[in-house]
Design a binder for these strands. Sequence first.
DNA 1: GACACGATGGGCT
DNA 2: GCCCATCGTGTCT
Length: 207
Amino acid sequence: MATRRVEAIPQEGSRLSRRFYARPSVALAKSLVGRMLFHDSPDGLTGGRIVEVEAYGGRNDPASHAFRRMTPRNSVMFGPPGNLYVYLSYGMHHCANVVGETEGVAGAVLIRALEPLLGLDLMAHRRGVSDLGLLTKGPGRLCQAMGIRLAQNGIDLMDGPVWIDGAPRLRGQIQASARVGIGIGQDQPWRFFEAGPWVSGRVKAPR
DNA sequence: GACACGATGGGCT
DNA sequence: GCCCATCGTGTCT
């Protein structure tokens, strides 16, 4: 498939610290837009720039998996900040979240879309498509492209095969809207994105 | 056990 | 825009 000219892509040595992740999920969500997400898997290295995220809380957020209580599935959300929370959606799609807050307090940021930059051929192979616009647009698609699965649930972003780079690179202003695909909690504008060709869904204004 | 339900995405109209 | 595959999870019996 066609290759793209990309800017210098930050590599090892500039991972975000646990201290960075230890903050309220809404603040963490905003701060993650524009940063690089990497996965160094046995298949190869893939990476993309985060362009769309959603914040999910705990007992304060009826749309969150952690709204009621801790269960085997959502336990990672209650764990240390800086871990990866992966779950299966609709029986076939994986969704990747970055855990925030502090240990014992649930909160996470769903990664909804990336600008695909590194390992494009591998992403295309995993996705079974060659269209760049369909590689990492949407939480399920980006997990498939990046090779993120249930096996990666709970891994540590500070010291693991999946990590986020320290320096944000923004090409526009960060915008906010209601979250996508939830039936409740739409009054909170907790979706944050940099408008452009890589963002999923449609732009909805907070109700 | 049984059962209802998705933080989705692909295909079709 | 509408339909629905597909299965882990949580809730209820």
